[in-house]
Write a protein that binds this DNA or RNA. Structure first.
Length: 670
RNA sequence: UGGCCCAUGGUGUAACUGGCUAACACAUCGGUUUUUGGUACCGAAGAGUCUAGGUUCGAAACCUAGUGGGCCAACCA
């Protein structure tokens, strides 16, 4: 193992600092805390990759902890799916834990908090409490129940637990500060009454702890050293720390380590949505066939689509970790899966949009079994036999009656190589009444040593097996479907996200098994779907091959859309600010470029008023470039109707004495 | 109108914590090789680090202000 020379992300920097400050490396401990209320998606993979990745890097334990404090939304089905997905990704958790395991200790701590006067029972409606809470810009007001006696609070809380009250009648709140600018500190709710059956604790409890109270304390109980979560929890940190510091008094002997919460930006993928709620809607409204529909960004969807765990892990590695909002281009994900599959997937031939080719000089009824290499990237992959005969299919797209010489494929009078077989020449076409090509008549040549520009894949008609091919396109046509505030994300659905075809495959595929991945040569990577039956194989297209030929054809809509997009900031930039920027780099430019830039500044100067320019006379002496640009603009203005004044004279004189020659030269021309 | 966070090529991250010509990956464009218009290899273009001021011999990094974006008012997590 070589030393990891990769630069550290900000979380790794924090850990390294903590280590340097004396934290013992064996105290490092992480956790991944999903709520079992939905399936994991590619966005979660980032969180998984960060915490489990850190675990692998530092050989530290990573707990899988289900944050199951809301029995109304959570189900065992999701627990199972989450475990399956994490394991599939190849990560190993130290302990499988549940927040619900800590209900008892959490309750006991809550009682201590009441005894310390740090928590109280509130008995208002949620509406009343919401009103008292204030707004982000307006402080809140105290609850009339805020100063109940400790005895009364203890009594009420115990009776809440005992199930004496209906839901919604009482809550336990932390007593912090209703005037805190951070709304989470305004006496947050710790417990609510919920007469619901929990997937693990059954009917043992009718009060359930809230996220903030549960999550941080679970970290503390598990002695997690670094509790990593996404950015929207940043405001929670203050409360996380408040709870933690109070509870520390009750547990410091057995639980000496205080966890540290840090936040990173979540992953966004272009053309997809990540919200569990919205994904659920796609499932419920039948837009997709289920959580594992290959078009879904869920881990189970990607798995079914043919993605490998390795490709997803390298993807997560490549996207990095930082605190700024980001949208990752799907092309990066596609790059990762192609990179992996290129090395591992065996090549086969399949024709998805067939046209018949008759090789007129090949004997009728004859069949040859030719050798075909399975994977030139992997010598151990070996060879297989493919049958060749008089009648074969090729792709419609691979033949044109006439075409320019940039078209390497088959055309009348032209030659092309058949992959793993012979060179053929197209002599004639047979058309039906409508003019559609029915057959292409070719002759073949057994001398395959000649250089021929194009190579086509093909399949012998008599030997081909039919299979269902499912081709997928992005589910949404908008780059960030859920960012439009005016439109519902459903409006951006791509109506053609699924295309079902019948493909003709070489016979070696008849033994293909569910989950196996292949490269259909020149087309893309495909895997065998679980809907397959021995009599009827079903393939999913995982991803197409890179296609630099397709790019030469007219650009697609999406391309033009993304290119039109410019930063809003830059759109409304004034001439003067553009000039400032040009000036900044002016002194670094080559002479040739300086001339160009100067002309540009002169043009822009037409849109600059003297009032805009004057403040820049005070530009620092060392910023010669900016002053040069200002000088150029000044000269343009003087050429027009501007009159010289003392401020201008002063600026010019100062420039004449400058050590920058360009500036002096420009000033001399005034 | 408050608080907190963020700002580096088209995209995502770096920059040894103030010091070389701002690096890497994806995307883009060109070339070489090739029985996949794939892969591999070589090369190019693209940012002077949101703006302005300041500190400093020296700023992407530090300070101030501005601009732009995000988050925060669920008995959700």
């Amino acid at each position: 193992m070589s030393e990891d020379l990769k630069s550290l992300n900000f979380i790794e920097h924090i850990i390294e600092e903590d280590l340097a400050d004396g934290l013992s490396i064996d105290k490092l401990r992480f956790r991944f805390p999903p709520e079992p209320n939905g399936y994991l998606h590619i966005g979660h993979t980032k969180a998984i990759g960060i915490s489990f990745g850190l675990g692998e890097r530092y050989k530290a334990p990573v707990n899988l902890r289900f944050d199951d404090t809301n029995p109304t939304k959570e189900e065992q089905e999701y627990v199972d799916a989450i475990k399956r997905d994490i394991a599939w990704l190849g990560y190993k958790w130290e302990n499988e834990l549940y927040s619900s395991d800590y209900f008892e200790i959490l309750y006991n701590w809550a009682v201590l908090l009441i005894k310390d006067g740090k928590a109280y029972v509130d008995s208002q409606s949620s509406e009343a409490m919401a009103e008292q809470k204030g707004t982000p810009t307006q402080i809140g007001t105290n609850s009339p129940f805020r100063d109940r006696s400790i005895q009364e609070n203890l009594d009420l809380f115990e009776r809440m637990k005992a199930g004496e009250f209906p839901a919604g009648t009482h809550v336990l709140r932390a007593k912090i500060d209703m005037a805190d600018p951070n709304m989470l500190m305004r006496d947050p709710i710790m417990y609510r009454i919920l007469h619901a059956k929990h997937h693990r604790t059954g009917n043992d409890w009718c009060i359930y702890p809230m996220y903030d109270w549960t999550h941080g304390e679970s970290d503390y109980i598990e002695q997690v050293s670094h509790s990593l979560c996404s950015l929207e929890f940043k405001p929670h940190r203050k409360l996380y720390d408040w709870f933690k510091e109070h509870v520390y008094n009750y547990g410091k002997t057995e639980l000496p380590l205080l966890p540290k919460q840090r936040e990173f930006a979540r992953l966004n993928l272009s053309y997809t949505i990540m919200s569990k709620r919205k994904l659920l809607r796609l499932v419920e409204e039948g837009i997709v066939k289920g959580w594992d529909d290959p078009r879904m960004p869920t881990i189970s969807g990607l798995r079914r689509r043919g993605y490998t765990p390795k490709s997803i892990r390298t993807f997560i590695d490549k996207v990095g970790v930082a605190k700024r909002e980001n949208v990752i281009d799907v092309s990066l994900l596609e790059f990762c899966i192609r990179e992996d599959l290129n090395k591992t997937a065996n090549r086969v031939m399949a024709v998805l949009d067939p046209v018949k080719v008759v090789i007129t000089n090949y004997p009728e009824g004859e069949v040859e079994w030719l050798d075909a290499e399975n994977n030139q990237e992997d010598e151990s992959a070996g060879y297989r036999k493919v049958p060749f005969s008089r009648e074969i299919f090729i792709e419609k797209e691979d033949f044109k009656e006439e075409a320019g010489n940039k078209y390497f494929r088959l055309k009348l009078g032209g030659e092309v190589r058949l992959k793993n077989a012979y060179i053929i020449k197209a002599n004639d076409v047979v058309k039906d009444e409508s003019g559609a090509i029915k057959e292409i008549h070719c002759t073949y040549d057994t001398d395959t040593s000649r250089r021929v520009k194009g190579t086509l894949h093909w399949v012998s008609i008599a030997h081909a097996i039919e299979a269902e091919i499912r081709e997928y396109d992005r589910l949404f046509m908008h780059e960030s479907p859920d960012s439009d505030k005016a439109k519902d994300f459903m409006e951006f659905l791509n109506p053609n996200s699924l295309k079902v075809l019948t493909g003709y495959l070489e016979p070696s595929l008849s033994k293909a098994e569910v989950g196996e991945r292949y490269q259909f040569q020149r087309l893309g990577y495909f895997n065998v779907d679980e809907d397959s039956e021995p009599s009827r194989l079903v393939f999913n297209k995982t991803v197409g091959l890179r296609d630099s030929w397709a790019k030469q054809k007219p650009k697609t809509q999406n391309k033009t859309q993304t290119q039109k997009k410019t930063k809003p900031q830059q759109q409304r930039r004034s001439a003067i600010s553009v000039i400032q920027q040009l000036g900044k780099k002016y002194t670094n430019l080559s002479e040739e470029k300086q001339i160009k830039t100067k002309a540009e500044i002169q043009t822009l100067a037409k849109d600059v008023s003297y009032d805009e320019l004057e403040p820049l006379f005070g530009t620092a002496v060392k910023k010669a470039g900016t002053r040069i640009a200002v000088m150029i603009v000044l000269k343009e203005l003087l050429k027009k109707d501007l009159e010289r004044n003392s401020v201008i004279n002063e600026f010019v004189e100062k420039a004449l004495e400058d050590k920058n020659e360009i500036l002096v030269k420009e000033a001399q021309e005034v």
